[in-house]
Design a protein around this nucleic acid. Structure first.
Length: 265
DNA sequence: AAGATCAGCAACCGCCTGACC
DNA sequence: TGGTCAGGCGGTTGCTGATCT
């Protein structure tokens, strides 16, 4: 192995670097409406010039509705230290035990802060010295992630309503992908997996929702051709929460106006 | 005021694993 | 049963913006 993924090869023209709001919108809207069955097909279906891996990463680390973002609490910090002690650099396992945090976020947090903190602790305990000057050199409001352009879009929205609002478990949107490492063509299997992995999804198929392609609906539709409306509604609900209101009939006005009103300054 | 330095974080890269054919 | 493919993971890089000099 180790060869480049076909989707990431130079043959295809793929964009790299930071994601634009429009790309985020496309990806989030697509996943909200059709779920994830095959990451490699998502760029094409969502009209993105990105590789599937990049889409997955963006979703997992940033767009996922169950991410809380913002600064790590002291409790979380302690938790991370304890988990790291037990699990080592298994960031995904640590993330699995810290709801609302992505492995990348935890990894960055560890690399940026905790490792240094622990090192300082060690040196100060041996030398009895003071904190190095660098420790107080903080970027304004650094950890609340409000300074980064992309982060600024989401942070104000996520924490407060989340408290009382029941949310799907992590892995909710990625259930289709979790079902198999290959793209799932058996849509009923994918739907079943999505339902069981999510744990909160409605199994009964209601009115079918128009679908652009079999692959894109694999995680939300049944074999009989009917889509799991509960599944879609639940996802759209989450996407609405994130981006503003839009509906399954393709009305994305709320989403668009959200981006417009939260344009980066 | 401007350049240097630093911290935070998003995203890429390469490799591994597991499922499918 | 081995090759191929796609998802997942950890390490690393590079950009952005705050702070310091």
């Amino acid at each position: 192995m180790g060869r480049a993924h076909p989707c990431c090869s130079e043959e295809k023209k793929v964009r790299k670097g930071l994601w634009s709001p429009e790309e985020d919108e496309r990806l989030a809207t697509h996943i909200a409406r059709f779920g994830v069955s095959c990451w490699s097909s998502i760029p094409e279906l969502a009209g993105l010039q990105r590789c599937g891996k990049s889409c997955r990463l963006r979703w997992m680390n940033y767009l996922r509705p169950d991410l809380k973002r913002g600064r790590f609490s002291q409790q979380e910090e302690d938790h991370i230290i304890a988990l790291h002690k037990a699990l080592g650099n298994s960031w995904s396992q640590i993330a699995a035990r810290l709801p609302g945090r992505s492995d990348n976020e935890i990894k960055n947090f560890w690399n940026a802060r905790l490792r240094k903190k622990l090192r300082q602790k060690e040196t100060s305990s041996t030398a009895g010295g003071k904190e190095p000057a660098a420790s107080h050199r903080r970027r304004g409001g650094g950890e609340d992630a409000g300074t980064h352009p992309a982060a600024a879009v989401f942070n104000p929205l996520l924490p407060a309503p989340d408290q009382d609002r029941p949310r799907p478990a992590a892995g909710y949107f990625t259930a289709g992908a979790a079902a198999s490492s290959s793209c799932v063509n058996d849509s009923s299997a994918a739907a079943a997996t999505a339902t069981s992995a999510g744990g909160v999804l409605v199994a009964a198929a209601a009115e079918p929702v128009a679908a652009p392609s079999p692959a894109s609906t694999a995680s939300a539709c049944t074999e009989a051709g009917g889509c799991d409306d509960g599944f879609l509604r639940a996802m759209v609900d989450d996407a609405s929460f994130l981006f503003g209101d839009f509906d399954l009939d393709g009305n994305q006005d709320g989403l668009t106006s959200f981006w417009e009103s939260h344009a980066f300054s």
